[in-house]
């Protein structure tokens, strides 16, 4: 399968933060949900993908092209949505459109006005009067009106009400009917991903933990519950982020089959949510850092 986004061994260091040896690929024709806690490098990764930042080392290519030679060509094919307003605030939506439109070869006014009508956006009011939801809808209208092949969104649903979040998912479903389109979006509202994401890319502390088919996660991972006396130095190696109490323990296994073989009926295995995986991975890493540093 073709990759639309490819990061190979990308490193980027800031004061007090570092992306380490990041290798990610995003498949064409699918929705990839990009998850991780706050400050683990999601926005930095997205900025690298959009050439808003340059990596210290490593290769980044989009549509098989690199930014050094094909910057404008690549950007023509991307639609972007940021988590905050990037448009001029003192002008109206209609005026903003006049600024954005000439930048794109494939701009289509009909599509733009369709979305403006669908979202009930006022064309003649200054953008600064827009609510957070309207702002997001306006971004979306701009992102979708130039027949972009790749839609990149940074936290598009943060601060939005459930109704609009559902509307957004419907729009994304409509887009995905076209197998040439690819969507890559970061979020920490992981329930948004359950109905739309084909792949999940998970990063933690500047490192890529996994990219998997969404359904594969519940095949590989499980929440394990059992009695505390099952745990010893060896069996603890099987788990991430063990939480013990008087009543027993809870932990995450990254190899459901092996755990099932090892413990059989002595433990309960439950389907983990993405939040569980984020939480236990964080706890696991923190413990690891504590005991080994």
């Amino acid at each position: 399968m073709e990759n639309v986004i490819e990061l190979q061994n990308v490193n980027k260091a800031f004061k007090g933060f570092e992306l380490k040896d990041m290798s990610i690929s995003v498949k064409k024709g699918f929705v990839t949900g990009f998850i991780g806690g706050n400050g683990v490098g999601k926005s930095t990764t997205i900025k690298l993908i959009m050439n808003l930042l340059q990596p210290d080392s490593g290769e980044i290519s989009l549509f098989g092209l690199n930014y050094k030679k094909h910057e404008k060509e690549i950007k023509q094919r991307i639609g972007f949505v940021f988590d905050h307003n990037v448009f001029y605030e003192h002008i109206t939506l209609a005026e903003m459109k006049k600024i954005i439109k000439p930048a794109y070869k494939n701009w289509d006014d009909t599509i733009f006005y369709q979305y403006v009508n669908l979202f009930e956006l006022p064309l003649k009011k200054p953008i600064k009067t827009f609510s957070k939801g309207m702002m997001m809808k306006a971004s979306l209208a701009f992102a979708l009106s130039h027949r972009a092949e790749l839609i990149i969104m940074d936290e598009p649903t943060s601060g939005l009400d459930p109704i609009f979040r559902r509307e957004l998912l419907d729009i994304l479903h409509d887009l995905m009917e076209d197998e040439e389109k690819t969507i890559f979006f970061s979020t920490h509202i992981t329930t948004d991903l359950d109905r739309i994401a084909d792949y999940i890319t998970f990063i933690h502390n500047g490192q890529h933990i996994f990219t998997k088919e969404h359904y594969k996660i519940e095949e590989d991972y499980a929440i394990v519950k059992g009695e505390t006396n099952l745990l010893d130095r060896d069996t603890e190696q099987e788990f991430l982020g063990i939480r013990k109490s008087n009543h027993g323990f809870e932990a995450l296994t990254t190899n459901k089959k092996r755990t099932a073989n090892l413990f059989g009926d002595t433990v309960i295995l439950e389907k983990p949510t993405l939040e569980d995986i984020m939480l236990y991975t964080k706890k696991g890493n923190d413990n690891y850092a504590k005991s080994y540093s």
Partner: peptide
Amino acid sequence: MRQLAKDLHISVITTKR
């Protein structure tokens, strides 16, 4: 696959599988 995914509100990769 894509039509079914849209109609059922599920991801494309699920219907694909």
